[in-house]
Design a protein around this nucleic acid. Structure first.
Lengths: 189, 189
DNA sequence: CGTCTATTTGAATGTACTCAAAAGCGGTGG
DNA sequence: CCACCGCTTTTGAGTACATTCAAATAGACG
């Protein structure tokens, strides 16, 4: 298992070396080439995915226009899953695709459930992950609902400088819910 | 404690009669008159609130225009809390206000934590609540990002007929992120 | 009724979009 | 090393969806 994720967990939860060993056993490494899909619309998100290195985008396909609408990005040390589909094991409405060659750590839903029974302290860790995600979504809703495109872009640059540097502007435009042409006009200032 | 909430919990979690008794002890009833606040911007959401009867709105104040922007509604059998603020005990950016006379069941954060230690099965119940909320937020983001005002309004009517019947249109307009005038024009069709 | 709040209507305006085309940029191969 | 290709970004012009402001109308309630 990856040391970075382990450290993250141990920062929140105390683990015996035996538990640490068990924990590691549940996760498997997976690699994706640029352009490959981790999840497609209609499929169930069967694993929770931690990004070791690389970059991915999650998007929704507008059924009327066929356009991709970016919902979130994921890079090193982020999670790249449809948590709602993963937790409930129902079909996802997202697509998640590698934007660069990517290395992941995966845990299948069944393993995840078993792991939580074996190491119940982890409930706390994953609750905190869920809460952080919740906070991110709340923030995104407010920004989209309340502020104009320029304000959203500036907030984005401040909040996610690493993402802004790593993904092309036309994807960032979609995430911010503006057209690429209009984002370009915003950037001129 | 209120029977309806108890039934909801027991539908998901097995409880001994002793546990049921302990559980009930943690919750307190609270009433709000129409117009009173449950939470104001900058305050910490210190309790989780289950609505027994009545109706509330949660909104964000746009710091530039001073406008209320509705984030969610809550009626009977819903939760009316800023979960993010409640879980992390950090200041909320929301206001939550009674739109009708309202009766709530409240549990303070400290009690909530104690309760989860005493009755660990409840972890599961509250995880499920959190997940449902997550699903709602995801849906809202996609609707706002992808579909036009008419589509959002029709989806809203279908998803939340009880809310649509209960709150004035100018609040629903705010929730849907359109002006009340424009919602009125949409409704003409 | 009269008053207060909510909804509707009209007209002018604006923010952001679409479509089309040009320009920039990076890699690859001749 | 330069030419070409594909992809991303920029620019321009016309347009649309939705807003704002103002005023009229409709509803609810004491």
């Amino acid at each position: 298992m990856n040391q970075q994720l382990l450290n993250k967990i141990k920062a929140i939860v105390a683990l015996s070396s035996e538990e640490e060993r068990m924990l590691s056993g549940y996760w498997k490494e997976k690699t994706l080439k640029k352009g490959e899909y981790l999840l497609t619309n209609g499929a169930i998100c069967r694993s929770d995915n931690y990004v070791i290195e690389g970059a991915l985008k999650a998007y929704y396909i507008n059924s009327e226009t066929g356009n991709e609408e970016i919902l979130f990005f994921a890079i090193e040390d982020w999670w790249a899953s449809d948590l709602y589909s993963f937790q409930k094991q129902i079909p996802s409405i997202y697509n998640i695709q590698a934007v660069e060659d990517t290395k992941l750590l995966q845990i299948a839903n069944e393993s995840f459930q078993k792991m939580l029974v074996e190491i119940p302290q982890l409930e706390r860790f994953f609750r905190i992950i869920l809460e952080s995600y919740l906070g991110t979504l709340q923030r995104k809703i407010i920004l989209n609902q309340v502020y104009d495109a320029k304000h959203r872009y500036l907030d984005f640059l401040e909040q996610y400088p690493l993402i802004a540097a790593r993904f092309p502007n036309y994807l960032i435009a979609s995430y911010l819910n503006v057209s690429p042409e209009f984002l370009s006009r915003i950037r001129k200032k």
